[in-house]
Nucleic acid binder design. Structure first.
Lengths: 282, 282
DNA sequence: CCCGGCGATACCCGGCGGGTATCGATCCCC
DNA sequence: GGGGATCGATACCCGCCGGGTATCGCCGGG
């Protein structure tokens, strides 16, 4: 199977429309139809249910969509990491670290400082991204290492080392009645009908149904809380940077959050090993 | 990057010889040279140091060898799993389980029995292989799930669940002086100059230097021990199937062995989930 | 019933992957 | 030191396949 065929297949599987997929791929529709048919013949498997009005994935097709994306990511990673390896000699950034914008900044700063003091430290580019993007960036080679937060981020398929754990606090508009309390429970937070918990979009772009407002990043979230339209349960570390129109109260029974450093399992980079070692000593 | 280019590159990187690599790929040498040069131009990276007498990998080349193998495995996995998904409807084996020949047969039998009793059980093919092959089989889609033994097998990049732990015993020829002892220590085992520990070939086909005989499978090993040419430290489970010309003595300070069930991290198969659930209840 | 949307088919062209012949460099050996 | 052997690179040719345009056939909706 060639990566071109896989890319074509993934495009059609995502669009479920040969015309739009062809447009996305910058080719005409007929060659695309032909390529997919050829792929089906070579695999001996029907990938799409086509009527002249609609296209749908078969069972086998959805397997290939999942596996094919992973395979394409692996190929992209091979490409990017090879290019980076060639540049490494010339002194460009040695490692790319990715983390969620606005999380663990404290820990990250400490880590970067400690690592920079190591004798054989290399340059580190820090990449900030939205929630759920990190795993992708690690898998397709755009990043070498990530700071993730269990249990929110999936660490499936990655090597990890725990760095720190912390409790969670509920963030409320300043002056809210609950802010006078020394601590609260999840049930009390959930029982605030005028301050619903927000909904985050999933990695696939879809968002769960529910009452809360849809937010895409931290700033947006804090703004909504300040406006009295939502509340949020966040790791304690969020407290130190709270705007003064917000207040935080510990939540006793919220799951504790573990910050972990994570990297692709087959990494063999000396620089990465050094960074992980430094992180483990923090 | 196309998989064809990757396959070509990996062949040359493994053979370090364009002629032999071309032969392995069933093409002539000139197109291979050209394909590699093209790949290098497209990546903007030198992959090989060539003199007219020898070919060597550059730094970037060895990165691409590692990453490229992983990518090719992922592509192969996509292919195989798609084909299998198409067959699944027609009732062929639902899962392929791989484990080392001659290990955990007790546990495996219990697992297969317990799983077969589940209401929605599917067929399971059992694949036995040499040590170190399992990870490969999981990654390239020839197997869905494996029984591994920590700390011997690497579980890097796989999802796992612990099943059981056991101590280790030293296996000796029947009648050996140590066999009268209730237990021994590693130092005593290592101090048997006439019964050295055997050496296993690594996954890459190379084998470590050292005194012991080179063995490739369990039968061979037990035969060597019976002949008084080696001894071995094995998990306790090995005791139950010992031939009567062999004896086993617990080793107090040998690392305990954990049998784990392992699967590729992005598996989404219902059947696999059922098997893992069953295994967890054993 | 006709039109519009969409995938499939028919057909053509150019580029690229593959082949053979040969070159050029380097090491080995007498 | 020169000749042969080895091995990768170059030159050149051919046929296939990937990509394009034109068009068909099916089907649902107004």
């Amino acid at each position: 199977m060639e990566t071109r065929e896989l890319r074509y297949f993934v495009a059609v599987a995502e669009e479920l429309h040969f015309g739009r997929a062809a447009e996305r791929l910058r080719i005409a529709q007929p060659p695309l139809s032909r390529a997919i048919r050829q792929l089906e013949r070579r695999l001996g498997v029907t990938l799409f249910e086509r009527t002249s009005r609609a296209v749908g994935l078969t069972e086998a097709g959805s397997v290939l969509l999942r596996e094919g994306r992973a395979a394409l990511d692996a190929v992209d990673a091979a490409d990017r990491r090879t290019r980076r390896a060639a540049l490494a000699a010339t002194g460009s950034p040695g490692l790319v670290l990715v983390t969620k914008a606005g999380a663990s900044s404290e820990l990250l700063a400490k880590l970067l400082d400690a690592y920079a003091a190591e004798p054989d430290a290399v340059g580190i580019d820090v990449l900030l991204c939205g929630p759920g993007d990190q795993e992708r960036l690690l898998r397709d080679g755009r990043a070498d290492v990530a700071l993730l937060h269990r249990p929110f981020d999936s660490t499936v398929g990655l090597d990890t080392e725990d760095l720190s754990t912390e409790g969670q606090v509920v963030v409320l508009p300043a002056g809210h009645p609950l802010t006078t309390r020394p601590h609260v429970r999840m049930a009390e937070v959930a029982a605030l009908p005028d301050l619903p918990l927000p909904r985050w979009p999933g990695p696939d772009g879809t968002s769960p149904g529910g009452p809360g407002p849809l937010v895409h990043d931290n700033t947006q979230l804090l703004q909504l809380i300040a406006l009295g339209r939502a509340c949020a349960v966040l790791p304690e570390a969020a407290r130190v940077h709270l705007r003064d129109d917000l207040a935080a109260v510990p939540v006793l029974d919220a799951p504790t959050v573990t910050t972990v450093i994570a990297w692709p399992p087959h990494s063999r980079s000396l620089a990465l090993a050094g960074l992980v070692r430094t992180a483990g000593r923090l």
